[in-house]
Design a binder for these strands. Structure first.
Length: 129
RNA sequence: UAAACAGGUCCCCUUAUCGCGCUGACAGUAUAUGUUAGUGAGGAAAGUCCGGACACCUUAGUGCAGCAUAGCGGGUAACGCCCGUCUCUUCCGCUUUAUGUGGAAGAAGGACAAGUGCAACAGAAAGCAAGUACAGGUAAUGCUGUAGUGAAAUCAGGUAAACUCUAUGCGGUGAAACGUCAUGUAUAUCAACGUUUGAGGACUGCACGUUCAAGUUGAAGGGUAGGCGGUUAGAACUUAUGGGUAACCUUAAGUCAAGAUAAAUGAUAAGGAGGUCUCUUUGAGGCCAUACAGAAUCCGGCUUAUGACCUGCUUUUUAA
RNA sequence: GGCCCCGUGGCGCAACUGAAUAGCGCAUCAGAUUUCGGCUCUGAGGGUUGGGGGUUUGAAUCCCUCCGGGGUCA
């Protein structure tokens, strides 16, 4: 259960994506960047996650697909720590900002860093409120 | 033998762990979820340069305009594609000095004997005209030949990827088409009745023409976001047979081969095959683990990007 | 998924009804002027007209094809 990434957990709604770009908060660990937004309407799934690579940096569709797959894979293997330690629902969107083709290890390392940062940051914001 | 050239195939394989889309079966009230089985990118999926299928739009009429094609014949659902052939151009060879003949490659290859335009420099002159040198000739004259200029010279001159003419073809919009469900509300949609003016809109750019449109009654709805259908069995592929120079076609048998939608087809590890480089052969070690590249309604072509392997009887070229 | 437009020195533009030296302004460089610099004046360099092919005697211009950039449609 823990390391699956089914269709339901994918971020699909166009309006939600628009909202996330407009109002979402970001954490980055180059070349990755995470934009996230708390969903206030109650949804069944805890986290909806999307992945994107800009066409400006990678013209070839094959390379874009490859990077997106790497991002998804690394998220899938590491999402457990978030699922077990967080309250509420969130929408995630990962961006790849680099201009070179990455190796998998590189992507996974940065993914872990980002998720750690996220875990630290979110509870702090709640206490401030 | 190698390369050019032509044709064909698609690229890593096995195991383990984890994972994704679709379909079937089973469990389940269930389109939730789980288990299990099957299946899951290309020759170009690309560029969008042509041609269709399919769908809808007031059946899309007439004239003008516009666009496309262009020897001849065949193939095809159709084409600007393919095949054959004629002619022309270029190159090579042979014979011979005047052409003939053989081979290869290429060609948007109708008409300048309808009209209009254009032609730098050179040249007398590129056409409402004018006329050099030499020779010949005449009653006389650019009247005739040669020279000279130039891509082209009173020759029915050159040029149409100049306007144009001829022949043939072309209604428009594209899966964000279109159908349907749910959501539910603005005068904007639909149906019936009515139809003076003809503003304005629509039907292809324009004109003609056609048609809609103020009102009443009834039904129903706009925007936004979304589900399902369209959506994958087809001008399909493979093999054999017969026809045809060929493209291709006839007949028979067999096969079923992705349907995603912020968009699935992946990640890691080990071993093996392979390629390449280095060292001393056996062998060892390093690197790569492949090129170009990712379906988005579907077909037929064209163009472009590309690595490896396999085949080639005969024919052509190059090197040994 | 479809449609449309544009590529000319470093930058911004001309020349797009084919004609041989592809022009203009700014910028650059050199000289003059000035004690030095600026302004000003004079001169010079810098272009495979995005790449390739075709038509033509001749192509920035006409045609085909590829590359790059931009816009637009629910």
């Amino acid at each position: 259960m823990s390391s699956k990434f089914p269709k339901k957990e994918k971020l699909k709604s166009e309006s939600l994506i628009r909202e996330i770009f407009k109002e979402g908060k970001s954490i980055s660990s180059y070349p990755l960047k995470l934009i996230y937004l708390e969903i206030k309407v109650p949804v069944k799934t805890k986290i909806q996650c999307g992945v994107t690579v800009p066409k400006r940096n990678f013209k070839s569709a094959v390379k874009r697909n490859r990077i997106k797959r790497l991002l998804r894979e690394s998220y899938r293997l590491n999402k457990e720590q978030i699922f077990n330690n967080i309250e509420g629902s969130f929408a995630f969107l990962f961006l790849y900002l680099g201009k070179e083709m990455p190796q998998y290890e590189e992507v996974e390392m940065n993914m872990r860093v980002i998720l750690q940062k996220f875990l630290k940051k979110v509870p702090d914001e709640k206490t401030i409120k």
